[in-house]
Design a binder for these strands. Structure first.
Lengths: 234, 234
DNA sequence: GTGGTAAACGAACGGGGTTCGTTTACCGGC
DNA sequence: GCCGGTAAACGAACCCCGTTCGTTTACCAC
């Protein structure tokens, strides 16, 4: 009675049916991150959630760094890139930004992980870049410009995702009187947003996204005009 | 000969002259971060650098979280906000972005720290926001819009700073053939940048900054036109 | 069968941040 | 001029973490 059914402690030795797999470990890690934050998703916690000893994880995952990379891929796989096949470049870029941000908005604590760690080249993230790059070039963006446009755009999205994960009251100046202009705009924003029902992060993201797209459209138009000019001149 | 001059081991008890101070600890931490990265700047390493036992640090700093916040303040204090007093809003924003990014570019590993941790409201960072907010409102931006413009702009800057800290080869598709469009734009950018001598991160930052400013100018103009319209109508 | 591979356990290791008690110096008041 | 409280250093622990290593057991191929 002390060995089998209630405590379900597994004895040493390979089990008849495999208990773990890389995929299962990654998904469990993501679930724990969502539930308890990053610090609640250590090796020991993941093992406990799976009813397993920590050392067993190392039969399927090289270490924590690789595990985090796996979780990141799990999240970024859900960023849709389909828009680039059917929409004009600017509308596609907009949809991409929305999907990108949404994917990480569902798992706020992972954003800091993605932002810092480098992505391994074999991961599926490269396919995302491929789809975006193809869309931009097909629309007429110069080859040597396309990647920097993508990176610049991604900078904004990533920053917005971080902002999304931050504490909403992070900026609150409170009752201090030594920053009057800051306090005034903070209060004005709070009231305006409460009336319209949108969150601070969404509002800033919307403004930035519109600005970025408008600016890129202007640059695109200028490039097209210059190209026309060159052709006429020759 | 075993007690005083060579090993310079300090005996227990309060020393005649204080050895530590919060400021000194923060500066040492920043120096170690610059020299050895984040993982080389733990409590024990900071103590060793100061010739002190780890526990002594806790007489001046509550814990690692507070220490990190202090380091972040140390860096962000160096972001100049003077431009807002003398330049038009858009030129000031541009200068702010350049200074902001430069401040963290000097200490790449700190970027990830700033991005994630919330800032305590009493810190000097609030003064930065105050200066920026005052500049925007004075230029005519509506009170309830100003903060979201600032946050959106900061999202981009922060993302760009993270990009700056990332491995330059992070995106390199290498020789794989399954992402042709991505490989093509990567190669095209490499060649173009090598010719002009600018770094990938700088290029993307420049493009994004121009786009963001152009977009905000357009929004500003639209708001001004609408305001004029309202006035004429009434 | 028999040996090799692989997946689980279990016990340790090393290194982090942190706490607590002790020792010593300064400082303010009787 | 002593005397007690506060504060700053030490030193030894504590707990938690990621990780490694040896052992045990199951499967599989020859």
């Amino acid at each position: 009675m002390a060995s089998e059914e209630s405590a379900k402690r597994r004895r040493a030795g390979r089990p008849k049916q495999n208990v773990l797999s890389p995929r299962l470990i990654h998904e469990t890690a993501l679930r724990l991150i969502d539930r308890h934050g990053v610090e609640g998703a250590g090796m020991r916690a993941i093992a406990a959630e799976l009813g397993v000893r920590p050392s067993s994880l190392y039969n399927h995952v090289a270490g924590q760094a690789e595990l985090i990379a796996g979780v990141r891929d799990l999240v970024s796989e859900r960023i849709p890139t389909a828009p680039f096949a059917e929409l004009p470049w600017d509308a596609a870029l907009e949809q991409w930004a929305l999907g990108y941000r949404l994917a990480f908005a569902s798992h706020p604590p992972t954003i800091a992980l993605l932002a810092v760690q480098p992505l391994d080249p074999d991961s599926s993230t490269s396919f995302m870049y491929d789809a975006v790059a193809a869309g931009l070039v097909r629309a007429g963006w110069p080859q040597e410009r396309a990647l920097s446009v993508i990176v610049a755009f991604e900078c904004f999205i990533l920053g917005a995702a971080l902002d999304l994960a931050a504490d909403p009251a992070m900026l609150d100046p409170g009752r201090r009187g030594d920053v009057p202009a800051f306090s005034a705009v903070y209060r004005a924003r709070s009231e305006a947003l409460e009336a319209s029902g949108t969150s601070p992060a969404d509002d800033a993201f919307g403004i930035g996204l519109r600005a970025m797209l408008a600016g890129l459209r202007a640059e695109y138009a200028a490039l097209a005009a210059q190209k026309n000019d060159d052709r006429r001149r020759s």
